[in-house]
Design a protein around this nucleic acid. Structure first.
Lengths: 153, 153
DNA sequence: AGGACGGGCGCAATGTCCTTGCAAAGCCGG
DNA sequence: CCGGCTTTGCAAGGACATTGCGCCCGTCCT
C-alpha cells in the first residue's frame, strides 16, 4: 500500500460516494484520461487500498428491520480466551460489527435481526452460545439517525 | 418498493458482495439475459431498494485508524429535544453511525478519528457542543473483529 | 372457452466503454 | 547532462450497456 497522491485520493473519494460510476466518468472527474485512471484504480485495488465494492440495500427490502447493540464481557482477557470468542462470533451471520473495546465491556456488537422473535432466536442460538461470556447486555435501536458508509461522505 | 422475487434477491445479494460487477456477469450469475437483468436492476435502483454503491477503502489508507463508540444521554426525551440533537449530530462528518436507543443511554455513536489528538478535537468541537447533552461516555475500539457491509455476506 | 391485455423475457443492433500496446513526456539520481 | 524508470495520452479491438422489437405466458373479462 504505497503513498497516495491527490489524484488517488480523488479516485477513492469518488468511489466512496458512487462505487458504480463508470471508469470514463471517474477519469473525467479526477482529471485524467480513462486509461491512466483505470491503471491507477487497478493498482489501488490490487494493493488492498480498495477492499471492495458493495451495494447498499434498503434494510426494509431485505426484511431486516431491527438493529441491536450488544455489549459483552468475558471471563478473562487471556489471548486464548479472546481468540476463541472471536472465532465463534465470526460465524454468526447476523453480527455486522464486532469490536474489542476499552472500557466497561470487552466487546461491542451490532446485530441485525428481522424482528424481535428473530432476535430472540439469535440471542438464544448464537450469542448465548459464545464461549467465555459472563455478561450480555442488549439494547435496541429505536431509530437510525445516521448510517454513513465512510467518513465525511 | 414492490415485492421482490427470487431473482431480485439474487441480484441484491450479488451486488452486496461485489457492487462493481458488470451487468453481463451479474446476469449470468442470476440466470437472466443481460437486458432483462439491466431492466430489473434499473427498477431496483429507481424504487429505492438499492440505495447506493460504495467502495470500501482500507481505513489505514485514509488515515482513520481509530474508532470510538460514544454513548450519550440527553436532558429529556421531548420530541423537540431529540430533533435538535439529531440535526446537530448530522453535521459532524466524523460520526459514521448514530442510533436512538432503548436502554441506559439515549444515543449511541460510532465516530472515526485519525488518532487520539484528532478525537480530542472532535470531542471538544463537535460532541461537547451538541445540544441537550448531559452525559458522554467514550470507549475506544482496540481491534476490529468483524465489519460486514450487510447481513449474511 | 376464447380473446384481449399486460408484464416480462430474449434477441439484435448501436453506441459507449474498458483494456492493452505503444510512443512520448516528466522525474529523479548519478 | 544523460539514462532509466514511471506515468501519461492516444489508438484499436474487443467487451459491454442500452433500447426497440417481437414473443411467450399468465390473467382477466366477457
Amino acid at each position: 500500500m504505497a503513498h497516495l497522491d491527490a489524484i488517488d485520493t480523488a479516485i477513492l473519494k469518488a468511489l466512496q460516494q458512487n462505487g458504480r460510476i463508470s471508469n470514463a466518468e471517474l477519469a473525467e472527474r479526477v482529471g485524467l484520461s480513462p486509461s491512466a485512471c483505470s491503471r491507477r484504480l487497478d493498482i489501488l485495488e490490487k494493493s488492498g487500498t480498495v477492499t471492495g465494492y458493495h451495494a447498499r440495500i434498503s434494510p426494509k427490502a431485505l426484511d431486516y428491520k431491527m438493529i441491536a447493540i450488544v455489549h459483552i464481557s468475558l471471563s478473562g482477557q487471556f489471548a486464548k480466551t479472546l481468540a476463541e470468542f472471536e472465532a465463534a462470533v465470526k460465524l454468526c451471520p447476523n453480527v455486522l460489527v464486532c469490536y474489542l473495546m476499552s472500557g466497561e465491556y470487552d466487546y461491542i456488537l451490532r446485530v441485525a435481526a428481522k424482528d424481535l422473535e428473530d432476535y430472540e432466536r439469535i440471542h438464544r442460538d448464537w450469542l448465548s452460545a459464545l464461549p467465555h461470556v459472563v455478561k450480555i447486555n442488549s439494547s435496541f435501536a429505536l431509530r437510525e439517525i445516521i448510517d454513513r458508509p465512510n467518513v465525511g461522505v
